[in-house]
């Protein structure tokens, strides 16, 4: 599998998250999932576009620069 080049990665604050599901609905790649434990990301395929963070109504997702 080739490595995705990504400048930012999404990280979630599950305390803030209201489980609305916007991030999962609008993620272009289908790499966000709302589970019982909170939001999880598939970092193997996530391109770091930031749509999930932008669509989050409570700013629970932050885009963090990759190391």
């Amino acid at each position: 599998m080739s490595q995705i080049v990504r400048a930012f990665r999404p990280e979630v604050d599950n305390e803030k998250c209201v489980r609305c599901g916007n991030c999962q609905t609008f993620c272009p790649e289908g790499t966000v999932m709302v589970t019982d434990e909170g939001v999880v990301f598939d970092y193997r395929y996530c391109k770091g576009c930031g749509v999930c963070a932008n669509e989050c109504p409570v700013d629970a997702i932050k885009m963090v620069r990759e190391a």
Binding site: M1, I4, F26, C27, P28, E29, G30, T31, D42, R44, Y45, K47, G48, C49, G50, V51
Partner: peptide, 18 residues
């Protein structure tokens, strides 16, 4: 289960896969 394989070659933020 999905009908679309994960990991497309589209640009980040492209509406295509969505």
């Amino acid at each position: 289960k999905s009908l679309l394989q994960g990991g497309t070659t589209c640009c980040p933020g492209c509406g295509g896969p969505l």
